[in-house]
Amino acid sequence: MSALWLRRTAARFLLPVLLGACGEGTGGPTSPVPADDEVPRSLPAGFSSLPTHQGNPLTPEGVSLGRWLFYSPSLSSTGQVSCATCHPQARAFADETPLTQHGVSGRPLARHTPALINLAWVGELFWDGGVKNLESLSLAPLTHPDELGQADLSALLERLASQPEAVRRFEAAFGPDGLNLSNLLRALAQFQRTLVSADSRYDRWRRGEPGGVLSTQEQEGFALVQRHCVSCHGSELFTDNAFHNNGLDAQFGSGTEVTRGRGRVTQNAADDGLYKTPTLRNVTRSAPYMHDGRFATLDQVLEHYRHGMVASATLDPFFQRSPVSPGLNLEDREKVAILAFLEALTDESFLTDSRLGPPEAE
């Protein structure tokens, strides 16, 4: 979706009803994880609390409503597509196709569906950072003609108001007059903040917990990731939440063309070809890879960094190896070790936890 389209959508729908109600930015104070069955109990090493939006604190009822909405096909214009259609839990809330055609139009999207992992710590969202916080994140897929296709949000709210279960859930979360667009977006944001992945073998190893065992090869792979990948995949989140040009293409689009990357949001040529760093957590389950899903396997990804990177004006300096071609110096054995370590970042509880899956009838 284009940055221009996002700005027009925000101006038409979001600014009047959302910004005043939900506060500004991603910040707000961090709050302890609420003690209820709807939120994660494990956090990455070194983290003691789950960030929350100042105007949208987590509540059990709000998270429950957001979960119900996330899995409800009622949000789509056809009544057949939900957020989870393109974000299935078993694939780390990513999609298995490079450019999904699972939306209401059946047309392929312009970019690969990103995984939804540890979004509570993410600032600018989407591959190009076109959205600033989780409270506004869902507006774009809701209204995009190839995703959920809700051109008329008033009709969506009327449809929800005709469903007793929807009314009950909104009232429980936000009070008697709670069924409105602002609260719909708030609830989805609350649920997505609870999509915390921090219980892989690596996490248990870092925290010294039972089951936290890494083989010698996996520990070597971890050391190699720290040496070669930390400039983009640093911290316990395994992402810097920033934007980089990692040598995929030599030429980029102009204006608001999708191939411009971050540059089409900032309209700064220095940002052309830069894309959001995805987390490495659950990366073995979230194939395909890159903003356009061009790589089917992690082996292909590492081969790109070894031998396939191309130079351009905005290539991240970390990859430049003048006078030779850009890339990383990885031996075959080191590549195998990195692949082994990446498997240790798989969090089976995140992929299977029923609290993050479709809600049962209540």
Rank of each mutant, 00 (worst) to 15 (best):
G273I: 03
P29E: 12
H307C: 07
T143E: 05
G23N: 10
W68S: 02
H244W: 11
W127Q: 01
Q251Y: 11
L188F: 00
P358S: 10
R264A: 10
S136L: 09
F70R: 03
E236S: 11
P323E: 11
R193H: 03
T52Q: 15
F222N: 01
V39I: 12
S325W: 01
T59P: 00
V33W: 08
C229I: 08
D177S: 13
D299H: 14
Q226T: 10
D249T: 05
V336D: 08
V301I: 13
T277A: 15
E348Y: 11
D95F: 08
V283H: 03
L148N: 02
R262K: 15
M290L: 13
G208H: 14
V301L: 10
M309K: 04
L195K: 05
L148P: 02
P141M: 07
P278R: 10
T216D: 15
A187V: 10
T59G: 13
P98V: 01
V336N: 04
A344Y: 04
D353A: 12
M309P: 03
N268H: 15
G123R: 14
T314F: 04
H291A: 12
A172I: 07
R264S: 10
S42A: 15
L6E: 09
D249N: 15
Q192V: 04
R91S: 08
R186H: 07
F252Q: 07
P210Y: 10
T279P: 05
T26K: 14
R186F: 01
R355K: 13
R91Y: 09
Q89A: 04
A92C: 11
T346M: 07
A313F: 11
G178Y: 00
A166K: 00
Y275K: 00
S77W: 03
F318H: 13
Y289M: 02
H53E: 13
S2A: 12
R168F: 05
G25K: 08
